[in-house]
Write a protein that binds this DNA or RNA. Structure first.
Lengths: 144, 144
DNA sequence: GTTGATGCAAAGGCTTTGCAACTAA
DNA sequence: TTAGTTGCAAAGCCTTTGCATCAAC
C-alpha cells in the first residue's frame, strides 16, 4: 500500500513537476487518502514531513491540478476537495460528512457515454460527465 | 415573467415560512436568477429592497434550503450556489465562470433511474443522483 | 403578545498572495 | 546557475454568529 518515494518522484517528473520533498509528501498523502480537503492533506502529509506549511500544501495541490495529476471535486460545503483518481468514475457523496467514495459502475458509464455519443450541446464544450450519488452514509458504515 | 409578490407570499407560507419582505425579495431574486451565489442574490434582491443586508440573505437562503424551497448546488470554487428548481434535473456547469444551466433530458434521467431501480448501495442512503455536464461555455454563448 | 426574523458589526474559516530565502535539475 | 519552489505572515474573500431591535402571525 505504502508507495516507494522513488516511484513518486518518477510520477511527478512524468507530469512535468519538480520532485521536491513537499510534493512527494503531498502526493503520498493523497494516495493514502484518496479524496481529501487541503486540511486533511496537510494533516496527513505533515506526519511524513513536519516542516510542511499550509500555504505550500495549497500551492502544491494547485500545481498538481494544473498538471493533471489530481482532480478538483465539487462540494456543497464551500471547501476544496481533491481526488487522486483522474479517470472517469462516479462518486458517492455524503452530504453530512462531505466525504467521497469512488463508485465504479462501468455499465452505467457505458450507458451514459452512449447516450451522449451523438448528442451535441449548443454553445458548450463538454469536458466530462460527473455523476454523483448524493446521500448519507449510514452510521454503521465508513466512506473515505 | 415577473411574479406577483402575493403569490410569493403564498409559496413561502406553503413551505411553512413567514412571509417577510426580505424573504419575498430573496425568493423573487432566485426566480429571476435560477442559479445563483449568495452575492448574486444579494445584488439582485437589493434592487427590490435596498435595506437588505448580506447576513439576512444568508439567513434567508439557509431557511429556504431547510424548508426545501431551494436546493444547494455543488461547486468547485468554494462558494455556495443555490438552485430555484428542486426537481431532479441535470446541469451544465461551466468550470470557468462557475455558472449553471438546467439541462433537461428526460430520456437520460429515465435511463439512470432504471439503472438504479434494483440496485442498492451498501451502507448508503441515496437521496438523489446528480448529473453534471462539466465543461466550458463557448465565448459566443451565455449560460445563466 | 409571541415567536421568530432582521440588521449590524465582529469574528471565523478557508484560501491566496508577496516576497525573501532556498533548492532541484 | 537559474528557474522554479518553499515558508512565513498578512491579507482576502466568503460565511457565520451574537445580540438588540423589530415584525409577522
Amino acid at each position: 500500500m505504502k508507495i516507494d518515494p522513488a516511484d513518486i518522484r518518477k510520477i511527478l517528473r512524468r507530469y512535468g513537476l519538480k520532485a521536491t520533498p513537499q510534493r512527494v509528501a503531498v502526493y503520498e498523502a493523497m494516495r493514502e487518502l484518496g479524496h481529501a480537503s487541503a486540511d486533511m492533506v496537510y494533516q496527513q502529509a505533515s506526519m511524513a514531513l513536519n516542516t510542511l506549511t499550509v500555504a505550500t500544501v495549497y500551492n502544491v495541490l494547485e500545481s498538481f491540478v494544473q498538471a493533471g495529476l489530481l482532480q478538483r471535486r465539487m462540494s456543497s460545503n464551500n471547501k476544496m476537495y481533491l481526488d487522486v483518481n483522474t479517470y472517469n468514475h462516479c462518486h458517492l457523496y455524503c452530504e453530512k460528512t462531505h466525504s467521497y467514495k469512488d463508485y465504479d459502475d462501468p455499465e452505467l458509464m457505458l450507458l451514459i457515454h452512449n447516450h451522449f455519443r451523438n448528442r451535441k450541446i449548443r454553445g458548450f464544450d463538454l469536458h466530462r460527465i460527473d455523476v454523483q450519488l448524493v446521500g448519507q452514509k449510514r452510521s454503521s458504515s465508513r466512506l473515505k
